Simulated scan of single mutants.
Amino acid sequence: MKLTYKQTELKPENSFLVKQERKPCLDHNWHFHKEVELIYFMKSSGTRYIGNSIGTFNTGDLYLIGSNVPHLFKNDKVNSFYRVLKGDSVDYIVIKFDPEFFGKQFLSLSECRNLQLLIENAEKGLKFPKMISKLVHDVMIELTQTKGLRSVIGLLKVLEVLSTVNNFTSLCSEVVVNNYTNKERERMARIISYLTENFDKKIELEDVASIACMTPNAFCRYFKKRTLKSFTQYLNEIRLRNACKLLIEGELKVSTICYQSGFNTITNFNRQFKSLMNVTPSEYISQYINGLAS
Rank of each mutant, 00 (worst) to 15 (best):
G46S: 09
G46F: 08
G46T: 09
T47I: 13
R48L: 14
R48Q: 11
R48V: 02
Y49E: 11
Y49A: 01
Y49P: 00
Y49I: 13
G51S: 13
N52D: 14
N52Q: 10
S53H: 13
I54N: 10
I54K: 13
G55D: 14
T56G: 15
F57R: 01
F57Q: 02
N58L: 02
N58E: 08
T59W: 09
L62W: 11
Y63I: 07
I65H: 02
I65Y: 03
I65E: 03
G66Q: 01
S67D: 09
N68C: 04
N68I: 00
P70Q: 05
P70S: 03
H71D: 02
L72Y: 07
L72A: 04
K74I: 05
N75L: 04
N75P: 01
N75Q: 04
D76H: 04
D76E: 12
K77D: 07
V78N: 15
N79I: 05
N79F: 04
S80F: 08
F81M: 07
Y82G: 00
Y82I: 00
R83K: 15
R83H: 14
R83S: 14
K86D: 10
K86Q: 12
G87H: 07
G87P: 07
G87D: 12
D88M: 13
S89W: 01
V90R: 02
Y92N: 09
Y92D: 08
V94Q: 04
V94E: 08
V94A: 09
I95D: 02
I95F: 06
P99G: 00
P99E: 07
E100F: 14
E100I: 03
F101M: 12
F102Q: 07
F102S: 08
G103T: 04
K104C: 03
K104D: 13
Q105L: 11
Q105S: 10
F106T: 14
L107Y: 05
L107E: 06
L107N: 06
S108K: 13
L109A: 10
S110D: 12
S110F: 14
C112W: 05
R113Y: 07
N114Q: 13
N114K: 15
L115E: 01
Q116R: 14
Q116P: 00
Q116W: 01
Q116V: 05
L117H: 09
L118M: 06
L118A: 05
I119F: 05
I119S: 04
N121S: 14
N121D: 14
A122M: 02
A122S: 15
A122V: 03
E123Q: 10
G125M: 07
L126Q: 10
K127V: 05
F128D: 00
F128Q: 01
F128A: 03
P129T: 03
M131R: 12
I132H: 02
L135W: 06
V136T: 11
V136H: 06
V136R: 06
V136S: 04
H137Y: 14
H137F: 15
V139A: 15
I141Y: 04
I141E: 12
I141D: 05
E142K: 12
L143K: 02
Q145H: 06
T146N: 00
T146M: 02
T146H: 01
L149H: 08
R150C: 11
S151R: 15
S151G: 06
V152A: 09
I153T: 12
I153R: 12
I153P: 02
L155V: 12
V158I: 15
V158E: 12
L159Q: 07
E160K: 15
E160P: 00
V161S: 00
V161T: 14
V161C: 00
S163R: 03
S163M: 04
S163T: 05
